[in-house]
């Protein structure tokens, strides 16, 4: 039973990773690409690690998998924030669909 749950998590996680990669290819500008890269990427890798933890319930492996998930969820937004600020300040053009830019008014 746990094998099937783990397999579902594994496939779902790798599909989310693929969606993140597709998003980086397809979306129009740097900031929207970053949406796909941070969220779908960390969710996908987190699901893969969760699948590992679900199948091998040994506590040493479980702790390592949980540590990987915590590390991903902690580092992904920090890195995304830094890249977003750097790209905005270096004047990367926003997509033509952008509705409003309140940061520019300052």
């Amino acid at each position: 039973m746990t094998e099937y749950i783990a397999a579902i998590f594994l496939i779902l996680g790798s599909l989310f990773c693929l969606i993140a990669a597709l998003g980086v290819i397809r979306l129009p500008d740097t900031l929207t690409r970053m949406h796909a890269a941070t969220k779908a990427g960390s969710l996908g890798a987190g699901l893969v690690a969760l699948s590992h933890a679900v199948f091998f319930q040994d506590s040493g492996i479980f702790l390592r998998a949980v540590f990987i998930i915590a590390l991903l969820l902690l580092t992904a937004p920090v890195a995304a924030h830094l890249i977003a600020r750097a790209s905005y300040r270096s004047g990367v053009p926003l997509s033509g669909r952008t509705k409003i830019d309140e940061l520019k008014k300052k």
Binding site: A6, T30, G41, G44, V48, A49, L72, A79, I83
Partner: peptide, 24 residues
Amino acid sequence: AADRVVAMDLLSVLVVAFLVTLSI
């Protein structure tokens, strides 16, 4: 350059997922 850094960040996340899958 920012696009390349985003791609590299995602690539490292994918490598982490790949290593965990390899472990399974």
